[in-house]
Design a protein around this nucleic acid. Structure first.
Length: 262
DNA sequence: ATGCCCTATGATATAGGA
């Protein structure tokens, strides 16, 4: 089974690239973030034409997540348990059962800057994610196949940014954000790190500006957090940096994970 | 070459991204 996660930075702007990528990479299930489209306007027909079912959770011009699956899609859950808002709840998490796997697509708030209200919101949101994941894992038992994939907007270690000195005082690298990720892992999840395909580190995001991609000045912020059963079933994982090239790319690349789930 | 910011919106500026 092949799963993937990709922040597409607008499914409307990215639809040609998304459809091309689905045909080439053929994931069984795909987690999308920043779809930036209300559910009613999601390009469901185009995706269904390629054999995928869709669970979208979007409400306007910002945020928006979705799950695509060609191995079944049921028990859809939109939003976290007791999800905090800014000030109202946003469209940042959707879960569903896709074949043998319970899968969530998550888009963690940016935080804007340490000390900002949005930063506190980010930490609150990560705590709600931890609680929701803990309940999902408890409901399925210790051997359950579960993964929470998405744009976490946190680089887990200094090795996950191109230059730690460039991030001093910024979000994405602070101790509280990293502690929130660690607390999430402590529920029983493992960080499935992809092969970078080129260079030494598997960055998943490069700013559009100043040729950052071409200089490999990136960050690893798109993560697959997998239960033990899923982590042990990984046969390959890679960052598809080819999807960051060419005309009209997202600023994020997909992270692809192959699993041998019995 | 991968090639030097992008997206959506009551839009001719603005907010948000990370």
């Amino acid at each position: 089974m092949r799963i993937a996660t990709w922040n597409v930075n607008s499914i409307g702007a990215r639809l040609p690239r998304l459809l091309e990528w689905l045909e080439q990479s053929a994931p069984d299930a795909l987690c999308l973030q920043e779809t930036k489209v209300p559910d009613a306007a999601f390009p469901t027909a185009e995706v269904e034409a390629l054999g995928y079912q869709v669970a979208s959770h979007g409400d306007g011009r910002w945020n928006g997540v979705a799950l695509l699956s060609r191995v079944g899609l049921s028990e859809v859950t939109r939003g976290l348990t007791d999800e905090p808002g800014f000030p109202d709840a946003e469209s940042r998490a959707v879960g569903a059962t896709c074949g043998p796997l319970r899968l969530w697509s998550v888009y963690v708030p940016n935080g804007r800057e340490p000390g900002h209200e949005h930063y506190a919101y980010k930490l609150d949101w990560l705590a709600a994610l931890r609680d929701t994941v803990a309940a999902e894992l408890a409901a399925r038992g210790s051997g359950g196949a579960f993964a929470a994939c998405g744009d976490y907007n946190v680089a887990p270690t200094d090795d996950d940014v191109w230059d730690p000195a460039a991030f001093v005082g910024s979000t994405h690298v602070t101790e509280p954000e990293r502690a929130a990720l660690a607390a999430l892992r402590d529920t029983g999840l493992h960080d499935v790190v992809g092969r970078p395909l080129k260079y030494d580190r598997p960055f998943t995001y490069w700013d559009y500006r100043a040729g950052m991609f071409h200089k490999n000045m990136g960050m690893r912020i798109d993560l697959v957090y997998a239960s033990s059963a899923v982590a042990e079933a990984v046969t390959d994982a890679y960052v598809d940096r080819d999807a960051r090239k060419g005309k009209g790319p997202s600023d994020h690349a997909p992270l692809v994970v192959d699993l041998d789930l019995s």
